[in-house]
């Protein structure tokens, strides 16, 4: 287990370093940040001052070293648009995004898991078809379209919900539902296929043969086995939720990280973009690391006690 964690951790750290290097060089290749910020008609003096201020007059590898050293000191630069440290600008909006993601994730699980289980248990019957049709509609529906339609219905026509902002509890409703819809489809579908895979396994029949009633077999054997692959997909969902949040925040004027990212891109605020991307990359890599470890703990079959799997027992 220790070797496994070390192995995965070393890979995670390596991936992060690669991602940082990639992000840095991409940013620099993309064009002169000074011109990008000051505009093409800026005076040469202004450009020179800007470059010196941000260390852009050094050769690229030196810049990269400075950049890494700054990162190591927790110095992520200053927002070009707001003139405040990037870390402050971003940390102000992170909680709102996390709230939205958490609620969306919760709702997706709350509906998706039972729907998937029901569909698998009643495979081929009406409820299964209902869930399958619902899920395909769910993830085929672009979240920005759904968001706009909800705005039309609940804000313009019914006048029930506010059009944007994150001030009151009711303002959470539309963004959460919009974010969750696609993931309800994904979760229910994944749960269904995972459950169906388990329901065909011989140990369920063997458990029935030992006299265990169907409900016991479902709760005791089928669900725990089906849950293991679902854990891995939740790790991947985290990334999708972030992407979804950035769109939904724009639609509902939600003061979160996704909207900050989009406005920063539109105003070429590279330090903010860079910091958000680094933050996400590190978060995602550690999420996956955690999922790997969790998977390993949940499933005793994978490399128990770090030993090699013994080849070819019974054919």
């Amino acid at each position: 287990m220790t070797m496994f964690i070390l192995s995965k951790l070393s890979r995670a750290v390596l991936t992060i370093l690669l991602a940082l290097a990639f992000a840095f060089f991409l940013m620099r290749i993309a064009g002169d940040p000074a011109l990008a910020f000051l505009g093409v008609d800026a005076t040469p003096e202004a450009v020179a001052i800007f470059r010196e201020k941000f260390g852009l007059d050094q050769p690229l590898p030196v810049q990269f070293l400075y950049y890494m050293a700054n990162l190591a000191h927790g110095d992520f630069g200053v927002s070009l648009r707001e003139g405040r440290p990037v870390i402050v600008v971003v940390s102000e909006v992170v909680p709102k995004t996390l709230q939205l993601m958490g609620l969306g994730f919760g709702l997706a699980m709350l509906i998706g898991l039972p729907a998937g289980i029901l569909a698998a248990v009643y495979r081929g019957q009406f409820i299964d078809r209902l869930v399958m049709v619902g899920s395909v509609i769910g993830f085929s529906l672009p979240n920005f379209l759904l968001g706009l339609m909800l705005l039309l219905i609940f804000t313009l026509w019914l006048r029930l919900l506010p059009s944007g902002g994150a001030d009151t509890a009711v303002s959470f409703i539309m963004p959460t539902v919009t974010l969750a819809t696609a993931f309800i489809g994904v979760v229910s579908r994944y749960t269904r296929s995972s459950m169906i895979g388990v329901l065909n396994r011989p140990f369920l029949r063997a458990a029935r043969a030992r006299g265990l009633p169907a409900s016991t077999v479902l709760w005791r054997h089928a669900l725990p086995n089906a849950a293991i692959p679902i854990v891995t997909v939740t790790g991947l969902m985290f990334g999708g939720l972030l992407g979804g949040a950035s769109v939904i925040e724009t639609v509902f004027a939600w003061p979160g990280m996704g909207r900050l990212l989009v406005t920063s891109v539109l105003s070429s605020d590279l330090p903010v973009i860079q910091f958000i991307v680094i933050l996400l990359v590190i978060t995602m890599i550690f999420t996956n690391f955690a999922v790997d470890v969790l998977y390993r703990i949940l499933d005793p079959r994978i490399g128990h006690r770090g030993s090699m799997p013994v080849a070819g027992s019974a054919r």
Binding site: F203, R205, A206, A207, R210
Partner: peptide, 13 residues
């Protein structure tokens, strides 16, 4: 009842 695939007839987790 005893089945052919003994390992498979036990819950792996």
């Amino acid at each position: 009842v005893i089945f052919q695939d003994a390992v498979g007839s036990l819950d792996p987790i």
